[in-house]
Simulated assay, not measured.
Amino acid sequence: MSPSLPVAVKPTGSSASQVKKESTTARFLGAGCAGIAELMVFHPVDTTAKRLMSNYGKITSAAQLNTVVFKDKANASVPGRFFSLFPGLGYAAAYKILQRVYKYGGQPFVRDYLAKNHGDSFDRSFGKGNGKAIMHATAGSLVGIGEIVLLPLDVLKIKRQTNPEAFRGRGLFKIIKDEGFGLYRGWGWTAARNAPGSFALFGGSAAAKEYFYKLSDYNKASWSQNFVASIAGASASLIVSAPLDVIKTRIQNRNFENPESGFRIVSNMARKEGFSSFFKGLTPKLLMTGPKLVFSFWLAQTLIPAFNKMM
């Protein structure tokens, strides 16, 4: 039976300085399990979305779509095409697990800091309840910006998924030696995408718990309430960050020796492909990447309090 949404338009009125703190072990363990589960289930979906975002021009036929998604395996057998969606799995594992531990496990630490030192300011500026939800969103945004530390792993994963020719037989350490800080190419656009995207993710989830369910302690949300809250946060995050995500992906998927600036990409997209190009891959992301984000975020929000009770 699907969870119903109770009618509520007023916040709980709980103070932003009143937050439930979980143990560090519970935060990292819950977030890590969410990252592992997400990787196992959704890596092929992520590859499909990245290849669609990296495609230049419009897809006008099923045959062209098949070529874009499966590349040189477009004419292979069904198993061959399926396994072609698993490139860069090693990089993806390192990136995805670290990313989820950092993001889902790190946001509560920033939230705790804001609650302790600035909780009253959020309450005065936005009102109790509203301030608490915005504080959660702000903590998410700050953590999202810091996520650029993991950018090299994301770059290597995306290149494996969309442009494997960029490696030309080089291993991980050879690439790091050759490219150095070039692996951080696009960091500004990544931070610009992560800030509003993470704000919307954590803010949308907190708002759902605050307004739909009137929860003063977000950790007391049931698995079904966490699921609905995750849908709200993930949908808001994907829509808000879509244009910058397309730009970031196109910066990162190019050959190492032939980079292109984000502003040039924006100019070319607007001139040659039109405004709609900034939302390429949004429908597949909402239909495929959306459930991936919902799944991992829901799992983290459910597991972290559960692990905390066990410890």
Score class of each variant (00 low, 15 high):
Ser2Arg: 15
Ser2Asn: 15
Ala8Leu: 00
Thr12Pro: 05
Glu22Leu: 13
Thr24Glu: 10
Phe28Val: 10
Leu29Ser: 15
Gly32Tyr: 12
Glu38Cys: 14
Pro44Leu: 01
Leu52Thr: 05
Ala62Val: 14
Val68Gln: 04
Asn75Cys: 15
Ala76Leu: 11
Phe83Asn: 07
Leu85Gln: 03
Phe86Cys: 01
Pro87Leu: 04
Ala93Met: 08
Ala94Val: 08
Tyr95Ala: 04
Tyr95Ile: 00
Lys96His: 01
Tyr102Gly: 07
Leu114Thr: 15
Ala115His: 10
Ser125Ile: 15
Lys132Gly: 05
Ala137Pro: 03
Thr138Phe: 14
Gly140Leu: 00
Ile145Trp: 09
Glu147Lys: 13
Ile148His: 13
Val149Gln: 14
Leu150Gln: 15
Leu151Phe: 07
Pro152Arg: 10
Asp154Glu: 09
Phe167Ile: 09
Phe181Trp: 09
Tyr184Thr: 07
Trp187Tyr: 10
Gly197Val: 08
Ser198Met: 11
Ser198Gly: 08
Tyr213Cys: 00
Lys220Phe: 01
Ser222Pro: 14
Trp223Asn: 12
Phe227Lys: 07
Ile231Met: 02
Ile231Gly: 04
Ala242Phe: 09
Val246Tyr: 08
Lys248Val: 02
Asn253Thr: 11
Phe256Ala: 11
Phe256Lys: 02
Asn258Gly: 01
Arg271Cys: 04
Phe278Leu: 09
Phe279Met: 12
Lys280Tyr: 05
Lys292Met: 11
Leu293Glu: 11
Val294Gln: 10
Phe295Ala: 06
Ser296Thr: 11
Pro305Asp: 05
Pro305Leu: 05
Lys309Ser: 12
Met310Thr: 12
